[in-house]
C-alpha cells in the first residue's frame, strides 16, 4: 500500500521554481532516500509534504487521503513526524520537557523509551540548549521517534556530525526500519546505499531518477549529474 503520494507537486518562489511537478510515491514500511545537490529542492519538497511549506500547486496524499489543504499540525497528528535540517529543539527547556512535548504528553514511558533509544535518558533535567551539537541532533531524532509516526521525515540528520556519530545514526535508523516508513534526505552516499530500499534523485526541482539504490547508481544520467562529482 502507498503511504505517501504526491502528484505534480510544485513550489515557486518568486521567479524560481524550487520544486517542479514531482510525482512521488512511498510504500508503507520502506526507507526511501531523497538525494540531490544543494538547492535541488529536497527540503522544499519534504516541507510541502509535511505542510510546513505551502505548495504552489499539486497534491499530497497520505494513507489514501488527500491532505493537500491540511495545516501542518493536522498532518502530524495523522501520523507524520518531521525533523528539521537546522536543529530545532526547545533550547531553554529540559530534555524531558522536549521529549514529553514531542510524545504528546500522554505517555511518559513512551517518551522515556524514545530518549533511551538515543542514550540520552540519563540527562532528563538538563537544558536542551546545553547539549553538544551531536547530542542535540540525537534529541531531535528522538523527538521524531517519540511521536511514533507512521512516516518519519528526516532532513539531513547526519549533517555536521563526525564519522562515528554518523555510524551511530545509521544503526538508529536501521533499528526503526520495518516498523516506521522513513523518508530520508541524505548527502552521505554510504549511508544511502546501506539504508535505503529506494532512492529518488532530485535536480533543479525535478526528479532525475528513481528506483532501487543499484538502478539509480547505475543510471547514466545520475552518474553524469551527481555521483560522478559528489564525493562526500
Amino acid at each position: 500500500m502507498m503511504l505517501l503520494e504526491t502528484k505534480l507537486l510544485t513550489k515557486i518562489y518568486g521567479g524560481l521554481t524550487a520544486v517542479e511537478a514531482v510525482d512521488f510515491s512511498l510504500r508503507q514500511g520502506l526507507v526511501h532516500a531523497l538525494i540531490g545537490p544543494n538547492g535541488a529542492g529536497k527540503s522544499t519538497f519534504v516541507g510541502m509534504v509535511s505542510g510546513r511549506t505551502p505548495a504552489t500547486s499539486g497534491e499530497v496524499w497520505f494513507d489514501g487521503q488527500n491532505i493537500s489543504a491540511w495545516p501542518a499540525h493536522k498532518r502530524m497528528r495523522l501520523g507524520m513526524a518531521y525533523t528539521f535540517q537546522i536543529t530545532a529543539i526547545y533550547a531553554r527547556l529540559s530534555l524531558f520537557e522536549n521529549i514529553a512535548l514531542a510524545q504528546g504528553m500522554r505517555d511518559q514511558d513512551a517518551a522515556l523509551d524514545a530518549l533511551g533509544r538515543v542514550g540520552l535518558d540519563e540527562r532528563l533535567d538538563q537544558l536542551a540548549g546545553d547539549l553538544s551539537y551531536g547530542h542535540q541532533r540525537l534529541l531531535e531524532f528522538a523527538m521524531g521517534v517519540a511521536q511514533s509516526p507512521r512516516l518519519l521525515i528526516l532532513d539531513e540528520p547526519t549533517q555536521g556530525l563526525s564519522e562515528s556519530e554518523i555510524a551511530g545514526f545509521n544503526t538508529l535508523i536501521r533499528s526503526l526500519a520495518g516498523e516506521t516508513t522513513i523518508l530520508l534526505i541524505e548527502h552521505n552516499m554510504d549511508v544511502v546505499m546501506s539504508l535505503a530500499d529506494e532512492v529518488t534523485v532530485l535536480q533543479q526541482g525535478r526528479v532525475l531518477s528513481s528506483g532501487t539504490p543499484e538502478t539509480v547508481s547505475a543510471d547514466p544520467l545520475v552518474q553524469d549529474a551527481y555521483l560522478g562529482r559528489e564525493t562526500c
Binding site: 509535511s50 510546513r52 495545516p71 501542518a72 499540525h73 493536522k74 502530524m76 497528528r77 518531521y82 528539521f84 530545532a88 529543539i89 526547545y90 533550547a91 531553554r92 527547556l93 520537557e97 514529553a100 512535548l101 514531542a102 504528546g104 504528553m105 523527538m143 511521536q147
Partner: peptide
C-alpha cells in the same frame, strides 16, 4: 506546557502536531 512550547519555538510546536 504547550503555551510555553509556543513561546519557545512556534514552528517546532506546530510541527509536533499542536494547533
Amino acid at each position: 506546557r504547550v503555551l510555553i512550547a509556543v513561546r519557545e519555538n512556534e514552528e517546532r510546536t506546530q510541527m509536533l502536531g499542536y494547533d
